[in-house]
């Protein structure tokens, strides 16, 4: 009997030590700025990334509990292996297979973004998730209901306790957990990045593409983030379409500023992982990079808000030969970050 007790005690101690050890050896999940990136704009002092906060955010990100009927999670339209976009749809689909206004943007390098969505309507990552949750054609759920479902859930109160030191589930902590997960979706390890760090070399074709890119594309797709974060009209023909029974055109940034000079202007997207974030443009109208480059070469439509960079020397668009397009595409493919899309930390647990 005594022995048994000893054994039990030993076992308990062992379990305790093991669990401690497991905790200690868990690699710390912390935000770290890639050396060649600018300073992030997200205020980490208000929401430092922790292992428990990140894991809670990841669980929430992939959980349909955020939607009215449990059928749609953030991960439904933001699939990690597609750089957190949705393939196969021009306009993303939400609950009850309803169409949304636009093609979902990738979730990557959000710590450097000041504004979100194609029109920049949201100006704080911590306020972002409210929009897809409450949109009738996305998750169609009241945020107060989401919090109530989480409070009644067998696991979430404990996970909030671990992450934030309180099992009380507040909107603030809910949104901060989601931000922590998304902030760690950092793409900075493509072949291009490795080339920049002097670790590998690129082929002549790719380097020629980089040269053309810097001459003809980098004024908008600027710097290491491959965007200048501005809103521009890139000359897409305005399309009328029916959105859930209503005749619609997408006015872009004007929807937020109500300023007619912002008509048809959209966020300049990053080109990181562009090869795997098809289809392209705010409405997903182009399926291939070739089509995108053909648009810039010969498809640009004039309008009062067309970006001046696309109307130089009395010519619409950016002249590109097929050889130049091939080289550009070769270069753009070097922006695919295999480590990012396969990062086990970012997959559905």
């Amino acid at each position: 009997m005594k022995n048994l007790k000893k054994t039990l005690l030993g076992l308990l101690l062992g379990v305790f030590l093991l669990s401690c050890q497991k905790h200690d050896t868990d690699p710390a999940i912390r935000f770290a700025k890639p050396t060649h990136f600018p300073e992030p704009v997200y205020d980490f002092s208000l929401n430092p990334v922790t292992n428990d906060g990140f894991k809670l955010g990841r669980k929430l990100f992939f959980d349909g509990i955020l939607s009215r009927d449990g059928s749609v999670s953030c991960g439904s339209c933001h699939v990690p292996t597609s750089a957190f976009t949705q393939h196969g749809h021009d306009l993303s689909h939400g609950i009850d297979d309803k169409l949304t206004l636009r093609n979902s943007l990738p979730i990557m390098n959000l710590a450097w973004k000041r504004e979100f969505f194609w029109d920049g309507g949201v100006f704080d990552l911590d306020l972002f998730a409210l929009a897809p949750i409450e949109a009738h054609n996305e998750m169609d759920e009241k945020i107060s209901n989401v919090l109530q479902k989480l409070r009644n859930h067998p696991e979430y109160p404990r996970l909030f306790q671990k992450a934030f030191g309180t099992s009380e589930i507040t909107l603030s902590n809910f949104l901060k957990a989601l931000s922590q997960f998304q902030l760690m979706a950092i793409s900075a390890n493509s072949r291009y990045d490795k080339y920049k760090r002097g670790e590998i070399s690129l082929s002549d074709q790719e380097l020629a593409g980089l040269q053309i890119f810097q001459e003809k594309c980098a004024s908008c797709h600027k710097g290491e983030l491959f965007t200048d974060m501005s809103y521009r009209n890139n000359g897409l023909a305005v399309r009328r379409f029916r959105l859930n029974g209503v005749d619609t055109i997408d006015i872009g940034r004007e929807r937020i500023t109500l300023n007619p000079t912002d008509a048809s202007k959209f966020h300049v997207p990053s080109l990181r992982n562009v090869e795997i974030t098809r289809p392209y443009m705010h409405d997903g109208r182009f399926r291939t990079l070739q089509q995108v480059l053909d648009h810039y070469d010969s498809g640009v439509q004039d309008s009062p808000t067309l970006d001046p960079l696309l109307k130089q020397n009395n010519r619409l668009g950016i002249p590109l030969s097929q050889d130049e397009k091939d080289k550009l595409i070769a270069f753009l493919r070097t922006l695919t970050d295999e480590d990012f899309i396969r990062n086990p930390l970012l997959q559905e647990p």
């Binding site: 704080d124 911590d126 929009a131 949750i133 949109a135 945020i143 949104l175 937020i256």
Partner: peptide, 25 residues
Amino acid sequence: KPISERTGNLDIAGVAQGMYWSWNS
């Protein structure tokens, strides 16, 4: 303001549910 300063009558998931444009902060 940051989300942590939107409490009480400004809590978007509480009193202020329905009084906030999430698509246009």
